[in-house]
């Protein structure tokens, strides 16, 4: 759409800018402030330069949680995106079942995150949980509170349960917007269903899939409440993702400097990835 050049439009944006700036800039500046200072309590602060950043960037603990975080995010993206597309392709396009499917599928998205964690906790408990009990009675030794592998698998399955529906709903919306004429043309050409997917549906889904991957990347990179309630980051540190580690350092040990430096590095990583994605998305749109 052709847009008019009009500087007065700024007035319409002012309330948003004030509210968001108040919430974003003041806390961000506080974090920046902490990240370059050392404190020994009593509200006494000393200039510490970039020391905390060096410390965090070279600490093994940070490397370990960053690696765990990346492994987690890539695992869930690899499962959720294909699974979401598959389910969306299988969903009915018309008829009374559409609403039923949509309502049931959206349900996990609206459950408070700690309830998701608590729910999976009691679902997966080895003795009294439905899942834990079933898996153990199959003869597989499973206890997510003690075995690292079980804890990992449970956390991943929980996230798949929680968020695959987002990919499904986005993909479904994308599929519904493909005009019927495309499918008719494909039928006349005798295209196989794989060819229809590869050459008609997938190109049309590019945009929604970008949004889906972007949202899933951001949210899984920030995941805190669900694994915290489910496993508490354990056993050991095996499910301590970045946010959990950060809260441990900031509010648990009250090491403000390192926590602030870590926050900024963390934020910059998310920002960088999202900026690359956003730029690619906008370029696609212009073409």
């Amino acid at each position: 759409m052709n847009k008019l050049q009009n500087q007065k439009a700024w007035w319409l944006v002012v309330p948003v800018v004030i509210l968001v700036a108040f919430n974003a800039l003041i806390p961000l500046m506080t974090v920046v402030n902490y990240s370059v200072q050392e404190t020994f309590g009593n509200n006494l602060f000393f200039w510490h330069g970039l020391g905390w950043f060096q410390e965090v960037l070279t600490s093994e603990r940070f490397h370990a949680s960053l690696l765990r975080q990346l492994a987690f995010t890539f695992t869930i993206l690899l499962i959720e995106v294909p699974l979401g597309i598959a389910v969306a392709l299988c969903m009915p396009r018309t008829g009374p079942w559409v609403s039923v499917c949509l309502v049931l599928m959206a349900l996990p998205l609206l459950i408070p995150w700690n309830v998701v964690g608590a729910m999976w906790n009691i679902f997966a408990l080895p003795d009294i949980g439905l899942l834990g009990n079933a898996v153990n009675s199959l003869g597989i030794d499973y206890n997510f509170t003690q075995q690292p592998v079980s804890a990992w698998v449970t956390t991943v399955v929980m996230d798949v349960w929680h968020w695959t529906s987002l990919v499904v709903l986005l993909t479904y919306a994308g599929l519904c917007s493909i005009p019927d004429a495309y499918y008719q043309a494909a039928r006349i050409d005798g295209a196989s269903s794989w060819a229809v997917f590869r050459f008609i549906q997938l190109p049309k889904l590019k945009r929604v899939l970008t949004i889906a991957i972007l949202l899933r990347f951001m949210d899984s990179f920030m995941i805190y409440t669900e694994p915290f309630v489910l496993t508490g980051g354990g056993p050991g540190n095996t499910t301590t993702f970045l946010s959990i580690d950060l809260v441990k350092i900031a509010l648990g040990q009250f090491d403000l400097g390192p926590a602030a430096a870590m926050s900024l590095i963390y934020f910059l990583v998310v920002l960088l990835v999202c900026w690359v994605f956003y730029t690619l998305m906008m370029r696609n749109e212009e073409n």
């Binding site: 847009k3 050049q5 974003a24 951001m218």
Partner: peptide
């Protein structure tokens, strides 16, 4: 959606970055 104005694209991206800020980062300052 209707106008172009100084810094509109940057402002839009800046707004979106706040959707990307991990709440854990902001808990204590908040």
């Amino acid at each position: 959606s209707r106008y172009r104005f100084l810094g509109d694209k940057h402002l839009f991206f800046w707004l979106l970055t706040n959707r990307m800020a991990p709440p854990a980062v902001f808990a204590l300052p908040f």
